[in-house]
């Protein structure tokens, strides 16, 4: 099999995606590649967002929603449980609101908003997106293998990545501009220290993470994309 050849020839391609129609062997190839690389002494993470937990099947371990699990030396497998992640994330947001304002209970209007935002299909999509961003930005592995779900998903993921990238960039710039007006007013009124804009800080963090991961995944030097086809 000449995949080995590809990895030997291009050691800088550390991000690998397997795409193709359903049932053609993406998960099988992902697992085999991960196993081979781990045997070569590379630290490998193979991950998926497939709710069918097919990596759990192939490695015969229940790893769904359990973070990165070490299967054998150098081989880590992670199956993201998007629903569970969204639930935990909502709770985190609620807790933050309670702490920030000393509420016992989340105001109805805010709770409605949390529910409505979470009910949108775009919620799952953006949550999964962020999980992948998280994995890429955190680092710590020599190779990352993304076992994709159906066809289109890979390209879809990449195009989503550039759309998110541009959106966050625009919104962050708007916020930065707002900050400039605020600073201008403070200077004229000779006010001392302006308190930090926490929203701006969050946006800059989001922008940094998204642009880091999207620049990696759209870089052909770093990311290899394989289509699994029927022979």
């Amino acid at each position: 099999m000449s995949l080995a050849h590809v990895f030997r020839e291009h050691p800088e391609r550390r991000y690998i995606m397997f795409g193709g129609k359903g049932g053609l062997g993406k998960t099988t190839f992902s697992a085999a590649t991960a196993y081979w690389l781990a045997k070569q002494g590379k630290r490998v993470l193979v991950f998926s967002v497939d709710p069918q937990a097919s990596l759990s099947d192939i490695f015969q371990r229940d790893i769904f929603g359990k973070g990165a699990v070490e299967i054998m030396p150098n081989l880590y497998v992670q199956e993201i449980d998007a629903d569970e992640h969204i639930r935990a994330y909502q709770d985190e947001i609620r807790q933050k609101i309670r702490d920030m304002y000393g509420f016992d209970k989340i105001p109805q209007e805010i709770e409605d908003y949390i529910q409505a935002a979470s009910a949108e299909p775009a919620m799952e999509e953006s949550a999964i997106f962020d999980q992948v961003v998280d994995i890429i930005v955190e680092g710590g592995y020599d190779y990352y293998i993304y076992d994709l779900v159906p066809l289109g998903h890979a390209l879809y993921y990449l195009s989503m990545s550039s759309v998110y990238d541009q959106w966050i960039d625009k919104i962050t710039k708007l916020r930065e501009e707002m900050r400039e007006y605020e600073q201008m007013a403070a200077r004229i009124k000779r006010e001392e220290e302006l308190p930090e804009d926490q929203i701006l800080a969050e946006l800059q963090d989001i922008r940094y993470r998204i642009s880091t991961s999207s620049s990696i995944l759209t870089d052909r030097e770093k990311t290899a994309f394989f289509f699994v086809l029927v022979p």
Partner: peptide, 26 residues
């Protein structure tokens, strides 16, 4: 935006900013 039914920022990130705008929202 989706308070008005027009989702613009991906909802995951919009929730991340929500705590800071609680007083403004209503």
């Amino acid at each position: 935006g989706d308070l008005l039914g027009v989702p613009i920022l991906p909802p995951y990130y919009s929730l991340r900013l929500l705590p800071y705008v609680v007083p403004q929202v209503s």
